[in-house]
Design a protein around this nucleic acid. Structure first.
Length: 401
DNA sequence: CCTCCACAGGAAGCGCAGGAGT
DNA sequence: ACTCCTGCGCTTCCTGTGGAGG
């Protein structure tokens, strides 16, 4: 009997372009953080109080996504941890993301769990957990530093901050400091004024990167992740320029380059050039649009589908004087009703249909203008924002499934 | 000029779900 | 466990608007 080859045989492929693909993934924490020297220095100067056996001020970091907040924090906290371990200092560090630990109870449990790794705190009351937090600080006379990433995701943040800052009143040779990180500057205004002033004893802004900085960051990563001379200089420049224009976000730039590299690999090209970056950008944009369409409520999908059908079937299309092809909202509503009936879905009133049109326009999926001369009465002229065939085919799969 | 058309969009209110308060 | 409240999605009703057509 012939032995079948294992299914995974031949799946280990030597990449022709990557040295280490992981370096291009969002989870990678870079060791060097260029253009953030000032922020790192500031963080170190605040936290160094702990090394000196004083309470560090609470520190609040904010800036848009991909501006290096998390990477810098991780880096600084790692360094601090390494340092205090080597010197045998009583400094404890707990870091977590509040997207997962999104309530006072969950955050406190996570902290205490980190302090007592051998014990299990599942199921105990909030008070018991809080008591244990205080007990640990008192017994170990330690400086506790709590890093809370995406702190704005915590539901009862006022109470959490209050509990943590009030703990300091009961502690003498020990303390608790908070290092909060947020993407949203505005969220501070939703807080209780007392919470705000205690959380934001010290603040640090992470501004977006400009194109020049993104270029340097990307170049650095590319050097580590790819084989030499695989990525062309101009491709790096283009990816940096696109990311700078869109968001000033290093993550976008790196993701774009990763996509471009994957496109090159699929096409068996040994080089990543402008062409791949451009293609990657298009593909990313298309994916965003398609994801958006798929996550729309069913009724809005039906409305969009009606518009896509009329557009691709060239039914009911009016040509404007400037050659633009548009649809009138009344006809779209009729078509929508017909389609809804066909797929046995309910349909909404014309008033609500208008709101759907507004919403779809807000998402950029539609473009509308008010009718002027040449149209009876007062109607809205509707046009698709993206390719009709693509929208139609994706919605057909989605709605008829 | 008046009336009609074809719609936009405001206001009020309804039914329901989920959360807060007790 | 219970009620009460609130927000959401939606319908119904209404008023406004501006060109077309007689």
């Amino acid at each position: 009997m012939r032995v079948m080859p294992n299914l995974f045989e031949g799946k280990i492929k030597e990449s022709s372009i990557f040295l280490n693909r992981d370096i291009m993934l969002p989870s990678y924490t870079p060791e060097r953080l260029p253009f953030r020297e000032k922020q790192i220095e500031e963080m170190v100067s605040v936290l160094s109080a702990a090394v000196d056996d004083h309470k560090p001020d609470n520190l609040f970091l904010y800036g848009k996504p991909g501006t290096g907040k998390t990477s810098c924090t991780r880096h600084v906290l790692n360094q601090l941890d390494e340092f205090v371990r080597a010197k045998g200092l009583a400094v404890k560090i707990v870091y977590m993301n509040c997207r997962h630990y999104n309530s006072k109870y969950k955050v406190l449990s996570r902290i205490v769990q980190g302090l007592y790794p051998d014990r299990d705190f599942i199921g105990y009351s909030g008070t018991f957990i809080y008591e244990n937090l205080l007990k640990y600080c008192k017994e170990n006379a330690c400086r506790l530093i709590i890093g809370l990433d995406e702190i704005d995701k915590t539901k009862d943040l006022d109470e959490l901050i209050y509990a943590l800052t009030r703990a300091n009143d009961e502690l003498q040779n020990s303390s608790i400091s908070i290092l909060g990180i947020s993407n949203q500057l505005m969220f501070k205004d939703r807080l209780d004024p007392r919470t705000k002033s205690s959380l934001c004893e010290r603040e640090l802004v992470f501004p977006p990167y400009n194109a020049e900085e993104l270029r340097a960051i990307l170049k650095d990563r590319v050097k580590m992740a790819f084989k030499p001379d695989v990525v062309e200089e101009s491709a790096i420049n283009l990816a940096a320029a696109i990311a700078a224009q869109e968001s000033g976000d290093a993550r976008t730039a790196v993701m774009l380059m990763l996509r471009a590299a994957e496109i090159a690999e699929q096409g068996n090209h040994s080089k990543v050039t402008d062409k791949e970056v451009k293609k990657a950008k298009e593909r990313v944009e298309e994916e965003i649009v398609m994801d958006m369409i798929c996550s729309l409520p069913e009724q809005q999908q039906l409305v969009l589908y009606a518009i896509a059908r009329l557009t691709t079937d060239k039914k009911g299309i009016k040509k404007l004087s400037n050659e633009e092809c548009v649809l009138c909202s009344g006809e779209v509503y009729d078509e929508y009703r017909k389609i809804a009936e066909k797929v046995k879905a309910s349909s909404v009133s014309i008033r609500w249909f208008q709101e759907y049109i507004n919403e779809l326009e807000m998402y950029g999926l539609l473009l509308t203008t008010n009718s002027g001369k040449g149209f009876r009465g007062h109607t809205r002229l509707i046009k698709l924002g993206f390719d009709g065939e693509k929208i139609r085919s994706i919605l057909e799969k989605h709605l008829l499934a």
